[in-house]
Design a binder for these strands. Structure first.
Lengths: 197, 197
DNA sequence: AGAAGATACGTACAGTCTGTATGTATACTT
DNA sequence: AAGTATACATACAGACTGTACGTATCTTCT
């Protein structure tokens, strides 16, 4: 048949795939594990063997979704010749990625509530924040902005998260993203160092 | 003894009071209703009579907490002679209020996850957003900012929420709030209308 | 003032769901 | 080829929400 490692990865991937959709559709609390594994032709035994708990499964789902977003953002936020261009492209990529329901529900809404906000921030779960921290630091290094960088990063992170959620309900998503990126650009202009320090 | 209406309000208030603390401490999912009502010397019968469901109780808790924050913000965001001063004072009041654990956990983390983000936004639950919308509109009317006001409001709302959560873990909360309000002020400066339109 | 109804609970029970303990078959190791 | 580890299935225990129903107290209407 198949090697054990193959089987393991196949099963894990399948469960994570189904779980991602279910969690996005019904939310963490609204998903019954029995249902979930039935769709894969398995029982809860398999799930508990691989993931240990419902939270363990959720965390695996989160990590995969985060990786997807991170990749898209990193890819977008490079190749421009200016730091600000990179940064804004990263913001745009994040907002594009957040159009997917699994990103919004799982990463933006349920994630911090299920795993706890502190764990969410401390662990490697909220990688978006890390990338944003780095981006803000680069902006500061390049002299585009100055100020309390931690605060700036937190404000921008929350701002992007919220606008991602709001924009998902808009009629024209692209227009909403354009508008958001534009407002971010203007906001950053307000953070420009005052000349003559 | 007591009139029926009095008894009703007493019981409801007591349950909501205890529930607020419990939800803030353990999160929505971590609270067992049996435990909760036992602290009030009641049984779950009383709870289901008054609130109908666990979500119903949570919603009552949310509404009371929201009312408290809204009052603080409204009170702070008035009396200044300039619109921008009002607005920033409101932001500051929101951040001060968010130092209370029940505001953070219940209103910022669990609320949208438990009641669903859409219901949260649609209903009268996220009143902070409404106040912020109004504040942004006033800023625009006064000529302090211009642009896509919905987008600006969403960005600011998320920004304040996130910074409230981050700042709660800082050593010096007041300094964190000062820094955040200052960054918001500068960001708004970036949204100032360009002269000569 | 007394009867009829509404209200504020308590009690008991059913259903659902997570988690764990254990069994079994198949792949891997030596 | 025998033993071990692994990938599951099965069965069971425990916790929790929600509901149906009973009861006592207050309210209202005549």
């Amino acid at each position: 048949m198949a090697t054990k490692a193959e089987q393991r990865e196949r099963t894990r991937a399948e469960i994570v795939r189904i779980a991602t959709r279910r969690f996005a559709e019904s939310g963490y609390a609204g998903v019954a594990l029995e249902d979930l594994v039935a769709e894969a032709g398995l029982t809860r035994g398999a799930l508990y063997h691989h993931f240990g708990s419902k939270q363990g499964l959720f965390q695996a789902v989160v990590e995969q979704a985060q990786a997807g977003v991170a990749e898209a953002v990193e890819h977008a936020a490079s190749g421009h010749d200016d730091v600000l261009g990179d940064f804004l492209a990263g913001c745009r990529a994040f907002l594009e990625a957040s159009l997917a329901p699994e990103v919004r529900r799982i990463l933006l809404v349920d994630g911090p509530a299920v795993l706890g906000w502190d764990a969410w921030r401390d662990g490697d779960l909220d990688t978006s924040v890390r990338h944003l921290d780095a981006g803000v630091a680069e902006l500061a290094d390049a002299g585009v902005i100055d100020g309390e960088l931690d605060t700036v990063a937190a404000l921008l992170s929350g701002a992007l998260n919220e606008v991602a959620l709001v924009n998902a309900r808009a009629h024209d998503h692209e227009r909403g993203i354009d508008a958001a990126v534009d407002v971010v650009r203007r906001m950053l202009r307000g953070l420009a160092p005052v000349r003559g320090t």
